[in-house]
Structures are given as C-alpha cells and as structure tokens.
Design a protein around this nucleic acid. Structure first.
Lengths: 235, 235
DNA sequence: GTAAAAATATGATTAATATCATATTTATTT
DNA sequence: AAATAAATATGATATTAATCATATTTTTAC
C-alpha cells in the first residue's frame, strides 16, 4: 500500500494551495509536515458532514470531490466540484461551530487535513498564506454568485449545459483516442449541480444528441461540440 | 450641507468594518483619513457597475444598498442587501479586472471608498484587518451558498417568504406605533431577491394576507407574524 | 389638489417544469 | 456468463410557474 504521509516537497500535486503559498521558510515546512494528516477515501465516502463539528481544513491531494448542501427529500444542491489541489472545509474558518456543507468523494481521493487551531496559527505566521486565501475566497464568492444568477435565470436546457460546462471547468475533459469525454458521473449528480432531477437531465441529453452536441454510452459522455454548449448559456 | 469627509473616529457608524478592525495605530488612522473619499448617492443611483473597471473598495456609512447581477431582459438577481457598516466591491480584491456585480442605492446613501492599491497595502500592514476580512468572506460564502440551495429547492411561496426574511435580516424591521414593517421596496426588488417577478410577489402577498402573515399599504409591508414566515421555509 | 404616470393586484391563459409509469440499457453480483 | 439490481430513457400526465390583460391603487409631477 502506498504510503500516504509524504512530505509536501515530495508531493506530485503542484496545484496544492499549501505547496504554492505556505512553504516560505524551513520552520513552516517542518511544522506543516508535523501537523498534516493524510487519509484515503473511497468513492462515495463522506469526507465532511453538514452539521457536524468543524475540526479542520482539508486539501485534495488527488481525486474528485463534490461539496453539497442537503435539501429536502434527497434533493441536494451541489455547491462546488473540487479537483486535486482544491480546498475543502474552508468555510469552517469562520466563527461557525458546524460545517454548512457536506463533502463526498466522487472517485477514490486522498485528502490532507490540518487541525483548525493549527491552521489559524499558521495564518498568523504567514501573511502570504492569509492573503492568498483571501484571494481564493474572493474568487469563490464570484463563482457562487454567478451560479446563483444562472440558476435563477436559466431554463432546464440551459441548466444542463451549464452543469456540463461546470464539470469540464472543474475536472477537465478526459481524453482517449482523441475523444473528449466526461466520465463516471450519474445523471443524478449532474442534475444536482443545477437543481434538476435525473429525468430532466436524460431528456435534455436526448435533445443534445439530436443537436450533435454529445453522445452517451452509460456514464461516458462524449462531448462533440463544446462551442454549442457555451452558446446555449451565453447571455 | 453636511460635511461628508469626517474622520472615522468621529463617525457614528460603529458597525463599520474599518472602525472595528483597522484603527490599531495612530499611523494607520492617519493614513486612512488621508485616503478615504466619501460620497453621497441618491436613491436608485448606481454605485458600482457590473463590467466596469475595479477602482477600489467601499464601505456603507449610511443608507441601504442592493448588490445584483444582470440577467437577461431586465431580470436581475439581487445577490446581497447591504446596510450601514457593510462592505461593497470586496470581490474586486480578487485578480479580476472588472466588477462582477452592480450596486445601487435603495435609499440615499453615504459611501466611504478607498483605492484598491491603497487598500491592498493596508492589508499588508494590518494582519488583523486581513484576518477579519477573511472571516467576513467566509461568512459571505456561507450565506450565498445557502441562498443557492434555497433558490434551487423552494417553490414560489417559499421564495417570497425567504425574500422577506432576507430583507428583515439585512435591514431589520422599522418600528412605528409598535408595528413592525418593511418599507420602501418595490415588488420588483423583492422579486429579484429570489428570482421571481413582481406579479408573483403580489399573488403570494394576497395569500399571506389571508393567512394573517402581513398587511400591505403601498410600499409599507406590515409584518404580523414572522414565526409563520420562518415556518414556511424551515426545512 | 388634481392629473398623469407608475406600480400593484388579480383573473385568465399559456408555457414550462416536475412527476409518474414503464421500457430499456448498463452495472453488479454470484 | 447468467441473474439481479441499479441507472437511464422517454411518453404521458399532473402540477406549477410565468405571462398577459386589465382594473385598481399609489405615487409623482405640476
């Protein structure tokens, strides 16, 4: 079994927030190594639970994660899609006691975690980290606010286009034999990005197949024409 | 005419972010006084324009402001309601060149502004300010994410209840003769908080009157039973 | 204070969305 | 590889939401 607790400087994930902004001095690097705990999560496993007590802040070393809020009767709303290098549980840095979101692995994932108190101390010691975290928050805010407008303005067809583009934006397209595809997501997951249900996604997919925008084979979605998707949601 | 450029220490607005977190030293206090510019805006006047170049960050000294994103054909989405003490244009601190939102005065408002570069320098000098701004962003993020879920899950009746509660949360209730009321907002404004149109708000108001939740007289909305409003949107 | 304009209220109609039922396909288990 | 379970697709239907038209009320301008 692969050793999980590697040092940040040996880690392959160069998108990591810690790696980019927090290894200014040897002292910091050492402290981070000592306080980091790394865990593996299986597909569909919960990483954070809405309502449970905040214990720390987490960074995605590898894998894909969905962050969502519970709605009524199984109708969740996905808030973010997080790929490797991304941050999880940062809202817990605010004064709230409990997580306002759940996070669940969409694939096998390795997550590096720090205790909240340690991380708050780290922020005090590293203005550079704090400032970059501020920028991250500002961008997140821009992003969620755009999504809010989109959900309020888009119809079902536009929402499905938006969901696919969000997926591509967050996770990129897998390439095989020069074909771009989105893989391994249920219709339900896609629906929950934009507040729909799986039937509605299937129906719009049927339209998109007619329009030569995509083809599907099970959970593999071949993207044939990304430009058309973008046109659908261009305001 | 009232002099606008008062010193922060003479300002009556004790909710002000600058006043609370940024007057640690005399040097800072002096710098802030020198770099602050204060302006009056009339009702309905634009304070920030989506798409225009970011010039600074703004604080509401007095008055009420709506922050919104343009949708298609007059259908805007209100993102935040900001009362005195609130921050405007903070998303501009991110790396983006242009504002992602518009802001418009809902009443006469006095706004204190700082140049973006000055404010970024200020953040470097005051870790306390930076950290508190980080907390502010975290709370904003929680707030917008909750709204995102609500818009995706709520029906029209629930959305109107949510809009009224948002207004009360942001601006409080005006009191006169022991009666609580929301004042001075068009149905269109209320609708845009939750992605509806003014007709829909009027119709739900008719229901709410039947249910003794509120009474209206023009733009004055008497809130008779806030508990019932909360019940409507409790998940 | 009156006239004009704007905003609101509301019934009727149209359109869009969500749900249900069921067939089909895909994935999982043994 | 066959059997079972799960997920997806899709037509039909029900529900909800959005629009339109018009009456009424409120606000603004003179």
């Amino acid at each position: 079994m692969k050793k999980l607790d590697i040092l940040c400087c040996e880690c392959q994930n160069n998108n990591c927030f810690i790696k980019k902004h927090c290894l200014d001095t040897d002292t910091l690097t050492k402290e981070i190594a000592e306080n980091k705990s790394t865990n593996r999560y299986f597909k569909d496993q919960h990483i954070l639970m809405e309502g449970s007590f905040v214990d720390g802040i987490n960074f995605v070393q590898s894998g894909r994660v969905k962050v969502f809020k519970n709605g009524l009767q199984e109708k969740n709303q996905i808030i973010r899609l997080v790929a490797e290098g991304g941050i999880l549980g940062h809202r817990g840095l605010s004064n709230r006691k409990t997580y306002s979101i759940s996070a669940q692995a969409l694939s096998e994932a390795i997550i590096c975690s720090f205790d909240k108190l340690f991380f708050l101390e780290l922020l005090k010691k590293s203005p550079n980290l704090t400032f970059n975290l501020l920028l991250f928050f500002a961008n997140e805010l821009n992003h969620v606010e755009s999504t809010l407008r989109d959900l309020s303005v888009f119809n079902v067809r536009e929402k499905v286009a938006k969901a696919l583009l969000s997926l591509i934006d967050s996770f990129g397209l897998s390439k095989s034999n020069n074909i771009n595809y989105i893989s391994d997501l249920t219709r339900q997951n896609i629906a929950e990005i934009v507040g729909l249900n799986s039937n509605q996604v299937s129906k719009v997919f049927a339209e998109f197949k007619e329009d030569k925008i995509l083809e599907t084979k099970g959970k593999n979605i071949k993207i044939l024409n990304i430009k058309k998707l973008e046109q659908i949601i261009s305001i």
